[in-house]
Design a binder for these strands. Structure first.
Lengths: 233, 233
DNA sequence: ATATTCATTATGTCTATACATATTAACCAT
DNA sequence: ATGGTTAATATGTATAGACATAATGAATAT
């Protein structure tokens, strides 16, 4: 009558999750060991192991050798933020993407940037300013600094037809990303590029990327305040 | 001479990652099958499987039955955003946390909220307005709506000493979260609470949470524009 | 009391094997 | 050509058994 196939790791995960959610196993509970659960579910220890390991990866459980598996405090502490390239972000909405280079300069890294990225005193960077349009409406103004010590090939690239983000993705491996979100006022500079009033709010995302501890690039991306970064999980 | 223990799944992961990064296996490459790699690394197929599966989970590889495993475009598409409670967020910086309830009202859900959370026409909500201080300086103004159909116990809670977020965490399980980040102007209302000028920018995070498809609560959290939400991966 | 040693225990990882399942490519009939 | 059937194939999942490793707590020595 029932569809009871043997329990797979998904079934086990689901059941454990339910028991955590309905407080059958409240906060801090140490769950039965893998062998015990394997007996209960009638499956192999490896199956229980995978279920519990994945729940631990997802932040639901905490596992320690010898100590056993415990229920963690807040089941949902983390959300994933998609970090698509602007192009992908725009094209995903069905709009037409257009890129335009505003300026390009090779220069010594300004002090604030050296401090921010822990650069050497005489580090050189390429500073780009770019615009990204969605259906010809201003979508994002991008201030981009690329560290030449880490990415020397940036010297030979004009960035007139390809955006720095798309170029870097195809050119450079990355190991770390740091994101900072904040709000600011448009001011005269951004206002002109984004076609909004200087006293209107703008939404900024700063993205630093690193390769094995060496700074690769810093991007400061500015959107009209009406822009919304949506994410789920 | 070499420390060559038998390759574990971590070693396999590392080696594959290196080959992806140094373009030994460029974008779109279909990697050798699991059996072939198992032979190369001198380990069992399950070991290769785990390594590749985890890399797929991390967004480096794409796996399809029969089609094989391919190298994905952007090695870092997702970042995790920590969603701590305000209290934890403030106390993590070493500052003293203070909470204060501004207002509390039980009312029918306004139209925009009903639409936003897909509520029934006659749904009732508790609307709270709260302030969170770090070292007695305004840190966050919180507009909070709690859906009474889903959380009836909110009726009996005054929220005068405990913030709605802390209360909900201890009270309710959650299954889904949606976050929206944006920028806005303070305006007279927020300005007074956050102690900033009305024409200054504010940073807003809207958080909807759900339990099995039923809306639990919506929080609109407003910070002074200088606030920075930092995240890494 | 304090430190050291050591057995115990739960998880961590690997192996070899088996069967399931999605997808493609080749084949065949129309 | 077109459409449907089928076999081959790579991954997906499960199994039992084995050994590794970290953490605990008890027993022991200082």
């Amino acid at each position: 009558m029932s569809t009871a196939r043997r329990a797979g790791y998904r079934d086990v995960k689901q059941t454990i999750l339910t028991r955590v959610r309905d407080k059958t196993w409240p906060l801090g509970t140490v769950l039965p060991g893998e062998v015990a659960l394997a007996a209960e579910f009638g499956c192999a220890r490896a199956t229980i192991n995978r279920a519990m390991r994945e729940l631990a990866d997802e932040g639901v459980l905490d596992r320690k050798r010898r100590a056993g598996t415990t229920v963690l405090a807040s089941p949902l502490r983390h959300a994933k933020v998609a970090v698509p390239s602007v192009r992908a972000e725009i094209e995903a909405t069905g709009a037409t993407y257009r890129y335009s280079l505003v300026s390009r300069a090779e220069q010594p890294a300004p002090d604030w940037l050296r401090a921010r990225l822990s650069l050497a005193p005489k580090a050189e960077v390429v500073h780009l300013r770019c615009m990204h349009y969605a259906d010809n409406a201003p979508y994002q103004f991008e201030d981009r600094w690329i560290v030449l010590d880490t990415v020397p090939t940036a010297l030979n690239e004009s960035f007139e037809t390809i955006g720095p983000n798309d170029w870097l993705i195809s050119e450079m491996p990355l190991t770390d990303i740091e994101l900072v979100f904040s709000a600011a006022l448009a001011g005269t500079d951004y206002a002109a590029f984004l076609d909004v009033a200087p006293e209107s709010p703008v939404f900024q995302v700063e993205r630093c990327t690193w390769l094995n501890g060496n700074a690769v690039t810093l991007a400061r991306m500015t959107h009209p305040g009406s822009h919304r970064l949506r994410t789920a999980l």
